[in-house]
Each structure stands twice: as C-alpha cells, then as structure tokens.
Design a protein around this nucleic acid. Structure first.
Length: 497
RNA sequence: GGCGCAUUCGUCUAGCGGCCUAGGAUGCCACCCUCUCAAGGUGGAGAUCACGGGUUCGAAUCCCGUAUGCGCUACCA
C-alpha cells in the first residue's frame, strides 16, 4: 500500500483557470518525483468540466510552465496515451455511463430541485432551528415526477450514507475516520444539470479508468474525501493511495494565493531563477531526505524521494532561501551553459543583440567567469556586466573620490596609473597588479584608496569584479581612455575649489 | 455552528521513549580572508519542542483535554 517498488501512476489534474503557482507546483513535483522514483508514469489531465470558469489560454500557459520547469508527462495533452482523451470535457460519455451505473445501483438519484429552491428551504429550516437539508430525494413541494415529465433539467446526486463510518487512509496521516451520521454533508452533485460531471465524479472515474495508483492533492481535499471514498465504494473499486499534501504558505503565514504573493512559476523563471534550484528548494518544503542534506540534483531527488517522509504540516515559502539555492546552482553551472542561459537577459537589456552573434557570445563567455560567483539571479547579469560593453558616460565625483582622499590625490592616481599602465607591454593580471601596487607605494597611499579610485574610473561604480581581472578584460586601450576620462571629469572641480 | 487537519529556532526542517544541556539549513550578528561586492572559513545569538494533564524509571517523541491557525460545509476545483 505504501512504498512498494511497483511502478506508480500519478497525475496532475489542473482545471484550466489560471497559471501554475508555487503552491500547486510543489504538489505536482511530489507526484512527478514519485512516478519517476518508481519507474512509473506521470499523467497530465485537464479538468475542464466547469464551463463557467473556463479561461482561454490557461491550458497553454499551464503546459508551458510544466515544460519550462522540466516536468514532462508521459500521458496527456500533446503526447496522447492509452487513456485518451485527457480533457474531461471530451470524456462526457464515460461519466454518463458510470453515472447510469450508480443510478441503476440506487446509490445515485435524480434531483429536480434547483439551487435557489434549496437555499430557500434551508433558510426556512434554519429559522425554525432545524438542520439544513442533506438529502434531496423526496422533498415536500417538489414534484419530481411532474418536473421530469415537463422535461426539466436535473442533477444526479450521490446518496451519502448516514450511518457507519467512512475511513480515509491517508498515507502520511494515517486513518482519518468520519462518522457518517454526523458528517452533515448534503448529497453531492455528480452530474450537473448541463450534463457535465462535477470534480467528484470526473476525477474519481478518471483516476480509476487511468489506473492512477497514488493520488497526491492539497490537504484542503481531506474534508470532502468522504464523497470520493463513497464513490469508490459504490463502484466497488479499489482506492488509490491517498496522499494529502500540506499547503505552502506565504511570508505572512497566510495561504499562498494570487492575493498573497503566490506568483506564477513563469514569473520566477523570468526573474532569473533556475528550474533546478526551484525544484530543489520546493521539494524541501514538506519533505526532507535526512537531517542535513539539502542540495540535491534532480537525479538524486528521483532516487531519494519517499512519500512517507512528507510532513503533514504547512510550510512557509521563503524567497530568501530560494535565492540562496539559486546562487548555489548558478555557481556550480558549467560556464558554457551559463552563457546560453544568460544571453537572453543581456539581449533584453540591449547589451548584446537580440540574436547574439558568435563574437558577442564569445565576449560574454570571456566575461562570465568574473561575475559567476557573485550572481544570485540570471536577471542580475546585465547590471553586473554592462560596464564592459558601455563606457561610463559621466562620473559621480563623490564616488570617484574615495573616503579620506583628496580630489587632487585621485587625479594624481589616475594620471600616474594612466602613465604606468600605458607603458605595459604585456596586459595581464600579474603585470597590472605589480604596476599598480608599486604605484600605490610610490604615492604613499593606501591600496584601498587607489584601487577604489581606479575601479570607479574603469567601471563607473564601486562594486565590480576584481580590479585586475576587470582591467584585463576591458583591454589596455579602453582602460586608458576611461582613466583619462575620469581624470578630466575630476579636474574642473579642482579649479573651482 | 458542524466536521476535519495542523502545531520543534524568524523561516525550512531533523527527531519516530533514553544518543536532545534538541542537530542541520537559511536569514541575522561578529571575526578571518580581502582592492569593492559576493563567495569561502570560523564563531555567536536564536526553540522552556503551543499550553495543561496523564502513561512511564524516563517524553519533543505515546494518550487525553485546551488554545491557536487553517480547511471544508457550491450544479468550483
């Protein structure tokens, strides 16, 4: 029933009403990992049974998100499979057939009462201090036969049991026992009056038809699981292993939603987070391998993932920690791969062409090692590299002149450095370093003062890669131009003062 | 209201009766390294294991209450 080595079939069954968010992605990740871990299949099924909530383009977004994050499905839209179609809206006959079966068995019945009538009746009952309606089978004032004869629309409802127990065997929580007599659950609609099935009907039928072995879903489904279990029992089907996954909360401890900063996964990707970092971070909310291992490759996760180690309690999504993971993955990334991943960000920033030339990519590849270990997001690449491509147009004199240093001294440093570096015949880190350290000593200044002034002159900013590697990457000619520009920018201020 | 789920450092977690004066990670602070920023190294602060009873020689770990948070209570998923 649990951690058997038999191949599992799991599924992600979203309704096409929006994007894939961080919260739901974590549940998908668990499902996907379990299928891969057991050598089974991961299916994608579109639960588009609510025509009122249909959002055009949502399915495409959803599919694109899964592909971008790298969770490929074995059966479903685009790839097909033995249980096609994988859109519930195209499986209506199947649900109708099974619905008829339940009706024939007497566990489901036609209900002609309308929603507004139920509301009305319940309101009256509440006023009289009576409990709300649970069954809609034979109600005073509702003539089912007459309505049927008139051809009025009806819903098919499941007759919930009113005695005994319904037991949900949740893998990570153990058995959860519901007393049918005190459940207080109205007979749920299986088939809506428009002929479409509800979630309860469609999902159970499909999970059975598609031979799903492990159902992973958010723990908000625990409350309604008696319906699902009673459907399984009514059919006499074997239940899948139920795994109710804890939810992911936002910073404020509130459930992640569009309101509370739950962002679509594509936004994280656009922001420069790596799929592998997102996956690695996300899997650790609610699951752990042991007491210290955190950084794991996808392959290791597939090998190590174990449903029984999922925690039952909700976890807060911590963007700071994700950022740390992203940095780890960024630093470990092969330079040639990083170039490819970073190029689009540089293109978007206008630093290189939209369709980068070989020369541009080569230049980026040359520069990347200088900043790779400082990156936490791919999107930070433009701001850390742009000065290599664009000469500083002006200088902030307050920044160009380091603390405890006189403007005149800076001009002197710039001029001396210009002279000394200009004479160098070999332009490499060792040579520039030797020259500049000697110069510092000759001027009787501190390394920090000199190097900072030169850094600002060369890059226009106080934060950059190492000075020497930066100068070398910039090239001798360009370095000299920038030093001289900086000196010129500073000189007028001397005249004034 | 009813039913259900959850509860260990700010956050993610380890822990499944003695190894816990509660371990790791992240974040924070300090120091080291150092031309800046990161990275890296070292150290530190940070959890009376929600609270109260019990069981036991012994409980974060088992049982029962209480509190708090959350979910469900749709012809939504």
């Amino acid at each position: 029933m649990t951690d058997l080595p038999t191949p599992a079939r799991t599924r992600f069954a979203p309704s096409p009403t929006g994007f894939v968010h961080i919260g739901s992605l974590r549940t998908v990740l668990f499902s996907w990992l379990w299928a891969r871990h057991t050598g089974g299949q991961f299916l994608l099924r579109i639960e588009d049974t609510d025509r009122k909530r249909y959002v055009p383009g949502a399915e495409e977004q959803l599919i694109a998100s899964l592909q971008a994050i790298g969770m490929q499905w074995d059966e479903g839209p685009l790839v097909g499979g033995p249980h096609a179609p994988y859109h519930q809206s195209q499986r209506l006959e199947i649900y109708q057939r099974y619905a008829a079966e339940l009706e024939a068995k007497g566990v489901a019945y036609r209900s002609y009462i309308r929603g507004d009538e139920i509301e009305q009746l319940n309101q009256e009952r509440v006023e009289r201090g009576e409990p709300k309606l649970l069954s809609f089978r034979d109600l005073p004032g509702i003539d089912n036969a007459a309505r049927a004869a008139a051809g009025e629309p009806y819903t098919l409802r499941l007759a919930m049991r009113t005695s005994g127990q319904t037991v949900l065997n949740d893998l990570i929580r153990g058995p959860i026992v519901f007393e049918n007599a005190t459940l207080g659950m109205p007979d749920p609609v299986l088939i809506k009056s428009d002929g479409f099935p509800t979630y309860a009907m469609a999902a159970m039928v499909d999970d059975h038809e598609m031979a799903i072995t492990h159902v992973l879903r958010g723990d908000e489904w625990i409350s309604t699981s008696p319906i699902h279990i009673q459907i399984y029992e009514a059919f006499g089907w074997q239940q899948p292993v139920w795994i109710h996954v804890p939810i992911v909360l936002g910073n404020d401890g509130k459930r992640l939603s569009k309101r509370h900063g739950d962002t679509s996964i594509t936004e994280y990707l656009d922001a420069g987070f790596l799929p592998e970092a997102i996956i690695n971070y996300l899997v650790l909310i609610g699951w752990s391998y042991d007491d210290k291992t955190e950084i794991m490759t996808i392959q290791e996760l597939i090998e190590r993932f174990d449903l029984t180690r999922i925690r039952p309690s909700a976890g807060v999504f911590d963007r700071e920690k994700l950022l740390h993971f992203n940095g780890v993955y960024l630093r470990a990334m092969a330079p040639e791969v990083l170039v490819q991943r970073i190029a689009p960000y540089l293109s978007r920033a206008g630093i290189i062409s939209a369709a980068p030339t070989e020369a541009e990519l080569a230049r980026v590849a040359q520069l990347l090692p200088l900043v790779q270990e400082r990156l936490k997001l791919l999107s930070e690449a433009p701001e850390t590299l742009d000065f290599f491509f664009v000469r500083p147009q002006s200088y902030d004199l307050g920044v160009l002149v380091p603390k405890k240093t006189e403007p005149a001294q800076v001009v002197q440093v710039l001029q001396a450095a210009h002279a000394a570096l200009g004479q160098l015949t070999s332009w490499d880190e060792a040579s520039t370093e030797a020259v500049l350290r000697q110069l510092t000593e000759d001027l009787g200044l501190k390394v920090g003062q000199v190097f900072m002034a030169l850094r600002v002159a060369a890059t226009g900013r106080t934060v950059s890669p190492g000075l020497f590697e930066t100068l070398v990457a910039l090239g001798q000619a360009e370095t000299l131009v920038r030093l001289s520009n900086a000196a010129t920018a500073l000189s007028p201020s001397l005249v004034v003062s």
